[in-house]
Every structure is written in structure tokens, then in C-alpha cells.
């Protein structure tokens, strides 16, 4: 196998790309980890919520000619509502059911969204609109990147800091952490479980929407199954970081994004296996550290 020694500039360029890709993964991975934290559910529909967001943006900008900032606002609201709607329709009725039923229901929602997209948006590939504001190329020293590459990590970082503040230092966040541990006792405290769960889906979907809108600018071909691979990879990122842990999801996503870009940089011969890297990483982490890097500690005094 050939190892390519890149120039310093190419290397920096790749690191910048890895950071951008990792940040996009992080925005989606948080949704997986938060929903798992509260419902112990791997929400298979999350990747398809991501796909729906891209279509929403496509319609708002390319069909209805809305300015991108207005469109983005609508997309965020619409995706948030979609997340809540899915929870109400497909998961809430199964609150008392065994967890496997919930999982099957989420797979059902995933297929439903994909097929809905085929029917409603047609299966042909569409071109995500280009937004010059984000896509203009700027130079940082000798590295030339799209403005997007700078914005994505910053937006991700701001949102994550905000989210961590919400979860750790507000009353709502306290209710979320309590409910994620023990529904019944949380109810006795007066916490409205359904509202907490809706809130979780709202946050996860909104972050996925932000990720999707940026993703579209970087990878502009969209079709109804566009959410499948990013969805799987972001789920893996959440597992690597320790599912249920928000910081873990971010770290896992950044590692995964960086790995993908750097491995294809150093081993161009492996670029065909780009998508396999995440799955290999998953197998390795499950063998070495099944609870993930920041996985929940099981030790607990009763």
C-alpha cells in the first residue's frame, strides 16, 4: 500500500476539512445521543429527519426563492416540529411497551420518511442551492478554504456550549437529566415526562437541521436516501463517544471526521473504502471499550 506524504499545506487543508466534517457529524450525533439518553432508543429515523431538512432547504431556496436566512429559519422550525411529531405519533404510544418495539417503530418511521420523500420529492437527484455567502473561498495564510469550513466548527461549538449550559445549569436541563435516569421518580417530582421528551426531540432535530443545511452546501447532491450514510456514521460517532453523553458525541464525531479525511489523505489507495472507516472504528471501539470513550459509569451505590 502506498503512503502519500502530503505537503504541510495539504495537511493543514485536510485538518481543516476533517474539523468541518467532524463538526457536521457532531450536530447530528447529538440527536442520537440525547434521544438514547432519555428513551434508551436508537432513533433510526434521525438520519431521515436530516434528509428532510435538506429537502426543506432545497424547496425554500430553489423553488420558493426565499433568501437563505429566511429559508434556514423556516427549515429549523419545520424540522423541529417534524421531530416532535414523529415522537408523538410513533414513540409516545409505545411508552409502556418493551424497548424493542420502540426500535422497530423507529425503523418504520425511517422507511416511511424515505418513501415519502421518493413520492413527494421524486427519486431523482436534486442540486442543493449554492449560497455564495458561505461558499466563497477565503485564504488563511497558505490554506484556502470555503468560508463554510470556518463557520461550521464555530456554529457547532456555540450550539454545543449552549446545549451543555441548558442541560447542566437550567431547571429544564435538570428535569431532563432526572427523567433520563428514572421516569417514575421524575413524575413524583412533578416533572412532565412527555414535555421533557418532546424537548429532547426538538433539540436533536434542530441540531440535525443546522447540520443538514451546512452538509448540503458541502455535498450538494440530494436524493431521498441521502440521510442514510451520514445517519449511520453519526450514530457510530455517538457510540464511539459513549452513547447518552453529549460531550462524548462531539468528541466521537470529531475523531471520526478527522480519521476519515486523514486516512484518505495518507493512503489515497484506500479512498474507495472511505465509508468503511467509520464501521471499522465502531468494531474496534466495541471490542476495546464497549461503553465508548466517555461512557456512562455503571458503578452506583444503592
Amino acid at each position: 500500500m502506498m503512503i502519500l506524504i502530503p505537503t504541510w499545506d495539504t495537511f493543514l487543508q485536510a485538518v481543516a476539512n476533517g474539523l468541518t466534517l467532524g463538526s457536521l457529524y457532531a450536530l447530528v450525533a447529538i440527536g442520537y445521543t440525547m434521544v438514547y439518553g432519555i428513551l434508551r432508543l436508537i432513533n433510526f429515523a434521525h438520519g431521515d429527519i436530516f434528509m428532510m431538512s435538506m429537502y426543506f432547504a432545497f424547496y425554500m431556496i430553489s423553488i420558493f426563492y426565499l433568501p437563505w436566512y429566511v429559508a434556514f429559519l423556516i427549515v429549523i422550525v419545520a424540522t423541529g416540529l417534524l421531530g416532535i411529531l414523529i415522537e408523538r405519533a410513533a414513540y409516545k404510544p409505545l411508552r409502556e411497551a418493551p424497548r424493542i418495539s420502540l426500535l422497530i417503530s423507529s425503523i418504520g418511521v425511517s422507511f416511511l420518511l424515505e418513501n415519502f420523500a421518493v413520492v413527494a420529492f421524486s427519486g431523482i437527484q436534486r442540486q442543493y442551492p449554492s449560497i455564495p455567502f458561505f461558499q466563497n473561498v477565503i485564504s488563511l495564510g497558505s490554506v484556502r478554504v470555503q468560508r463554510l469550513s470556518i463557520f461550521v466548527p464555530i456554529i457547532m461549538a456555540v450550539l454545543v456550549v449552549g446545549l451543555l449550559f441548558l442541560v447542566n445549569y437550567t431547571k429544564t436541563g435538570m428535569a431532563m437529566r432526572a427523567a433520563s435516569r428514572d421516569f417514575e421518580t421524575a413524575k413524583v417530582m412533578g416533572i412532565n415526562i412527555n414535555r421533557v421528551i418532546s424537548m429532547t426531540f426538538l433539540i436533536g432535530s434542530v441540531l440535525a437541521a443546522v447540520g443538514a443545511m451546512m452538509w448540503g452546501m458541502k455535498y450538494p447532491q440530494i436524493q431521498p436516501y441521502v440521510g442514510v450514510m451520514p445517519g449511520l456514521k453519526c450514530f457510530i460517532a455517538a457510540v464511539i463517544g459513549g452513547i447518552g453523553n453529549i460531550k462524548g458525541a462531539v468528541i466521537g464525531a470529531l475523531i471520526l471526521g478527522m480519521l476519515e479525511i486523514l486516512i484518505t489523505l495518507f493512503f489515497p489507495g484506500l479512498s474507495g473504502y472511505k465509508d468503511a472507516i467509520a464501521f471499522i472504528a465502531l468494531i474496534v471501539i466495541l471490542l476495546v471499550r464497549p461503553t465508548g470513550l466517555l461512557g456512562e459509569k455503571q458503578a452506583e451505590k444503592v
Binding site: M174, A175, R177, A178, R181, M189, G190, I191
Partner: peptide, 25 residues
């Protein structure tokens, strides 16, 4: 209010947070 069997505290919340969550409403 109910003090449940086996305490059922929120183990990964601090003592202070457990006290405050009792006053959630």
C-alpha cells in the same frame, strides 16, 4: 408527595440538585 421505596434518588445529580428538584413545581 412520595418518598419511594429504596430512596430512588437521582444518583448522577448532586445533593443540592436532588433537593432543588423536589421543588420542581
Amino acid at each position: 408527595t412520595l418518598v419511594p421505596e429504596g430512596r430512588r434518588l437521582f444518583p448522577d445529580l448532586t445533593v443540592m440538585e436532588n433537593i432543588k428538584i423536589g421543588a420542581y413545581l
